[in-house]
Each structure stands twice: as C-alpha cells, then as structure tokens.
Design a protein around this nucleic acid. Sequence first.
DNA 1: TATCACGGCGGTTCT
DNA 2: CGCCGTGATA
Length: 728
Amino acid sequence: MKEPQDKFESLLASLNPQQQEVVLYTSSPQIIVAGAGSGKTRVIMVKIAFYCYALNVNPEKILAITFTNKAAQELKDRLEILNLSGVNSGTFHAVCLKILQAHGNYIGVKKPVVYDEQDQAALIKECLAQLEIDDKRTSPGRVVEWISRKKDELEVPQPVAGTKDYKLHLVYELYQKKLDALNALDFGGLIMKAVELLTKYPDLRDYYQKSKYTHILVDEYQDTNTAQAVFLKLLAGDNRHLTVVGDPDQSIYSWRGANINNLLHFEQSYPTAKTFRLEQNYRSTQAILEASNGLILHNLQRKEKNLWSDKTDGEEIVYLKVESDRAEAKKVAEILIENNLDGIPYCDMAVFYRTHSLSRSLEEILLKRGVPYMIVGGLPFYQRKEIKDLLCYVRFIINPADRISFKRIINTPARKIGDKTLLKIESAVYSSGTDFYTLFKNNYGVEGISGHPRKVCDFFIYLIDKYRPKFESDEHWNTVVEELIEEINYISYIKNTNTDEKADVRIDNINTLVEAFAEYQAEHENASIYEFIDTLALRSSADDLNGKQDKVSLMTLHCAKGLEFKLVCLIGMEEKLLPYYKDIEDADEIEEERRLCYVGITRAKEKVYLLSASRRFTYSGPKYSLPSRFISEIPEEKLKANSRPQKNEPARYFNVNYYPKDNHFDMNEFMDEFSVGDCVYHYDYGKGVILGGTGYGKNKKLIIQFNGEQEPTVVMASYAGLSKLDEQ
DNA sequence: TATCACGGCGGTTCT
DNA sequence: CGCCGTGATA
C-alpha cells in the first residue's frame, strides 16, 4: 500500500516536463493554455497535491472552481485517494452560493432561494402584467434571457425613458425588486450578489483573500463570463497562487455570456501573470488529432497552437452519408454493436448531436436493437415536473412567503382552484401586508376567501404547521417527504395524469429525490434544509451521470466538453444543424460552431464516425440538407477513402413543406389515397401492406405490415414518404 | 368558475 | 412532437 505522499511523488514523476513546470511554478498568477487532451485535469490535481504535500498548505484553504458540479465531484474523488478530501471545489455558482449563505446577511441576502428559469419566467410574467406589457409580443423567456445577459455583464437596470430597451430595463428593475423581496436569487444574481458583497466589505474580502482561500485554481476559464472574472479577481486579489486553465479553441458558451477575453487578456487583470502552454496530446491517435487540427485551422480568429502526439496513426475518420435520419440511427446502432463485439465496452462509446431533438429517432432504434444507452443531459433533474412540484411544496412549507412556489402547487394535484381564486388569495395576502401563513393562520375570516377555497388554504396551513418543524429539525427528511407525498396523494396524481410508462419514470425520479434528501443529510452534519434545496437547484443534468454502468452515452456537443471516449459518433453533420441555422450568417458564430465540432471530435481516443442524413423529418415535415461544411474542412486524407465527400454534389439544398399550413388540405385526395390492403413502399422499411389507419390529414397514421418486420408498424402518413405500389 | 379537448405554434446549446 | 393558451362545456 502506497502512502499518499509517495503517490503524489510518482504522480509528479509521471508528468512531462511542461506539465511539471506548471505544477512547480508558484511565483505569480499563472495561465495555462491547454489543448484538448493535454492532461489539464491531471495537472490541476497534481498541483493541488503539490501545494499540500510539498508546501504544506492546508487542503481546506484550496479552492478549485470547475465548470460543472460533476467535474467538481470527480476532482474530489480523485483527491480523496490522495487523502486530500478537505479541498473545496465547485462551480462559480456553487461557490458564490456558499459565500452568500455564510455572509449574505451583510447585504440583505438571508436564507436565499435559488430560482431557475421556470421560476424566473413566472416572476417575469407577473412583472409584465403589472407593467401592462403584452406577454405575447414580449415572451417571458426572452426577457429572462435578456436579463441574464445583463447580469453576466454586471449591469444593473437603468430605465431611462426614450432610450434603447427602456421597457426591458423597467421590467428588469421590477423583477429585481420582486426577487429581493422573495429572498430569491437567479443564476446571474448569485454571482452579482457575491460581487456586491465582496466589493462593499473590504474586511470580508480580506478574509477570503488572505485566510479562507489562499490557493485558487480555475478550470475551463475560456467559458467564464465577465461577472465571474470580476468575482474571481475579488476573491483572489493579488494572490500569486492563482491558476487558470483554458483552451480558446474550446470556447463554446459565448451565447451564455462567456467572454473569451477573460482568457486572452488575462495579463491585463493580473499583470504579473505568466503564461504556460500544454501542447502534447495524450488522448487521441494521430489521425484524429490531425483531422481536428485541420478543421480548427479554418478559424481565422485564433491563436496559433499546435497539438501533437506520439501516439500511432490510428484509424482514419469514417464519414457516412445516409439517406434519412432513420438510416442514420440504424447505421449508428450497427457501428456500436460491431465495435462492442470487437471489444470496446459500451460505456467507452458516445454519440454526440447538436440538439436534443436528434436523440429521439436514435433512441427508438437503439431500444429495438438492444443497445444499452443513457441520455446525459436533457432536462435537468431539478426541472422535471414531478421533482419541481415536490420541491415547491418543500420550498413553500419552509418559506410561506414564496409566492412562486405556492402558485405552482395550489392546484397540483387539482383542487378546484383556478386563476380567479388564486388571484383573490394573492390579493388578500398582498393587502394584508403579511405572508400567506400569517394571514390564514390568524384570521378566521379572510375577506373574499370562504368556502372551498378557504378549506384549501387551511390545508396548506396544516401542511406548514405539520411539516415545517420536521424539516427544520434533524428528523430524517426522506421519511418526512414520503409522508408529505402520501398526504397530498401525489403518486396517484402522477398515475392518473400520465401513461403507465411515463408514470413509472416519474415515480422513479421521485424515489431518486427522496434518496437525495437522505443522502444529503447523511453527508452533512446539522444539515440545513434551505441549503439542501438550493444545492439541488444548481445541479445540472450532466451531474446525474453515474458512469459505472456499461451504456453508450448520448449527449449534446455542449455536454461533451471535458469527457473522453474510445469511440465517438457525431450525428446530424449537416448544414443548418452544425453549423446551426441560426448561427450560419455570422462569421463569429460559425467559428463557435466549428469549435463545437472540434470539441466533439477531440473527445475520441481511437475512433470517430461522422454521419449526415440527406433527409430528416421534423415536426413541420421533411427537410433536406447537404453535408456540413466542416466535413470538407477535414483534410481529405484523414477521412477513410470510401467515405470522402463527393465534389459537385447536385444541389438539393432546399426545404420542402409538402403540406401547406392551410387545413383544407386535410381532405386532399393525396392524404386519403391510401386504403386498407394497398401495397406501399416506405423509404426505410421497404415494401408493406396497409392494415388500417387512424386520424386525418396531417395527423393521419397508418398501420402497416412491412416485409421482414415481425409486428405491424404505425407510421405518420404525412412524414413517412410513402408511395403506392401497383399490386404485386 | 374549473376543467378538458383541441388547435396553433415554436423550435439551440446550460450554470 | 409537446407545450401553452383558448374556447366550449359541466
């Protein structure tokens, strides 16, 4: 058994000279420009070990800021092996939350609740109504986004009549007031309030800089926004033990306010900073490396960098052009199965795509072929309806001033309370000047609320009285929650409002949530329910990933950052999808799309498959597209010979809506041209016979027995691209 | 006044 | 497709 100290020394010895130099350097802040696969995570870990074992730094004084909670957890796990479990790690948001939980009271932040986009949108809706702005023309979601971008730049509302975005500023101002009154923080607010706190209180700032966190490391620095950079500066001050790591070629979050200049102009904020480079790639084969280098070379705004590797050539990249999304899915399934037979475990394979929606057809086929898979990402756990519902119960019970939560749960499950009644209750609460609990607990006659609605209100008072003390004590929260779920009949509500299949998934999620309560309490002494709820809100979808099962990972390209697999498939390699159609006009945005593609390819250790489909069905009908320009930007000799894109392809670069929006088309003979017994040809399934049909027009479904399929298949007549065959 | 069924419509990437 | 808002219905 090796001692941790020995482990550290052998780790250090295993690094290359450049990596060692980075680890040993302590004279000033340092910025590490680290290419894909250059071992930056490892360098961060060894550097932390170096601080502790060589410089005798107390692990608790070290702060590692990561991009996701998952990355933070992985780092923690690795450090634990080195006996360094005291090291602090988390995302910017988690770190800010922690600081605000500890000292937020200085600036009026106490027991903060973290609001996600849904909560924000609900609050924005209130604001729009109050300001009499039409929420059809100004969608709450858009406003949320606008405000988020302002907060990324630390901009406060400045409503000046007659100036640009005057109304948006007005909404922002009102929204912020409401947030403050609710003790709520949105994502941007977490950073902004932390900045405010550390700016206003020099003593506190000193405490953080000089004694709380003396050594700070930040990963994925290319994807930080202005607010985060300012926060970091406040936290680090002139500390020379600051390390930031990033790769400009992997900057893919500018749409979220990330500012690449934080990385490129690091020396402006930290004049004594020294720059280091890590250019040796340990992950991928030569072929993959050269292909991705060739691709990223097409970006004009780019700092020269040359990744190299001493790995063997490896296999060339395979590009496959197929007819349809279905064929693409089948091909992917084949690739996965074949390689699995060749010895690559499923857990070492991944499929990446630009948008979540592309996973659907794939899932269907994988399920059919029995390929085990898991979707990483998708809707964050916290935002799933059943989870959000239950958490809103808890949120409201421990904080009856939380209007937004109340709104969500008062009629969930249905209790015969509609908008009108809700409005009455809200205005009664508002004009009483107190909160819901105080008003209904003490008054037997609340004006305007009687009969059934009053009973429902009393039920909530009962819930608060019964469960609040339990949540605030050290009782086992999981049993408390279970009791609550039972009390509100939530499980039968889920069963009654969902198909069996869906209900099962949701009940599964609820069980996971209940476990999470127990887990948190087990891991934290004197755990506070407030802190737990907020921690949960910051948990992203990628964080739920438990990598131990032997399953193929399906995820978006954004989600893929920081991961690696032996085999990688990129599907939907088409113009308008990658690059995405919204980013296709702007040169900067094209470059970001190219980086996204680059990130995808560089995740692979050994094999890369790129797939494009000529035809893809969307909800609005079939769409035709050409292979992505990025495929032809990969040096041709790095693509497998038989898979190189053909030059001068016939232009089929148009979208077809076969079916006009006009509903009269419903009765069109085209749609009803099929009848039972007809022989038809399906572009994918081949020949078949129609057994029956349901629905009309665009929604017409046909039940068809295809040759070679065991069971009849249901297809959408309008999407299937069916053609009638003469009798055989 | 609550609820249900239907039709229209938008549609990225995520802490 | 799935969500949301609308209008008819109980």
